[in-house]
């Protein structure tokens, strides 16, 4: 494997990790809102969260570009105020990956939370536990299998994201050229077949490792949560 290929692998892992880790708290919060509360705008929020699932990733990337580009209102403000530039940087790639994989996280966590007996929450109330206390001591631990499953699915989706990333942050070696982009580049260049094959094999290994890891985690959590 060449340095460039290892670089692509490490970059992919870093972007996926930041994307999932950064989105996780928001995913837990929104999953809880969707699972346990009722307010008029709930359907709208539900639709908005799931939009990246049905939207072509290229459209997602385009929307990010027109809103977060350096000349765009939000992007310009971020650059002027905090000196943050998301376009053409790996952080931008992480943001794109986070948004595209967000529905996977929310969906898994929400299902896990909806499966928790609401009676347990009532029991905790009769034992003196306030809302935040109940969320931390009952809801979160019981939803942990769903949180882990959601995180792993989202991690895999982030690793494989292509359209949104290439549209928003382009294909810059060492900065935004993740594994799928590197495979695409190798196929496009003459004599790159061997590199493409190696990278594709790597992607398959990563996917298998992710599956095994998620199964192990699910088993361990099941034994802890006693369900």
């Amino acid at each position: 494997m060449t340095d460039m290929e290892i670089e692509a692998l490490m970059l992919s892992l870093r972007i996926a990790l930041v994307a999932v880790g950064g989105a996780l708290p928001f995913a837990v919060l929104i999953a809880w809102v969707l699972a346990r509360t009722h307010f008029p705008g709930r359907v709208l929020l539900d639709g908005l969260v799931h939009l990246p699932l049905v939207l072509p990733p290229v459209v997602m990337g385009y929307l990010l570009l027109v809103s977060l580009g350096t000349k765009a209102p939000v992007g310009g403000w971020l650059l002027d105020t905090f000196g943050i530039r998301l376009v053409f940087s790996w952080t931008g790639a992480a943001l794109a990956a986070a948004i595209v994989s967000f529905p996977f996280q929310v969906r898994a966590i929400r299902l896990a939370m909806e499966a928790i007996d609401p009676g347990l929450d009532a029991a905790a109330r009769t034992l003196g536990a306030g809302p935040i206390d109940r969320f931390c001591s009952i809801t979160l631990p019981l939803a942990l299998p769903g949180i882990i499953a959601g995180a792993i699915t989202a991690f895999a989706a982030s690793l494989g994201e292509f359209g949104a990333i290439i549209t928003f942050v382009s294909n810059i070696p060492g900065e935004t050229r993740t594994l799928p982009l590197a495979i695409y580049t190798a196929i496009q260049s003459p004599g790159g077949e061997a590199a493409a094959a190696r990278l594709a094999g790597l992607a398959i290994l990563l996917a298998l490792a992710g599956l095994i890891l998620s199964e192990m985690a699910a088993r361990r959590v099941r034994s802890i949560s006693g369900s």
């Binding site: 009676g119 347990l120 029991a123 802890i224 006693g226």
Partner: peptide, 8 residues
């Protein structure tokens, strides 16, 4: 009636 012990 259904005890509602915390399973975890």
């Amino acid at each position: 009636q259904d005890s509602r012990l915390f399973p975890h």
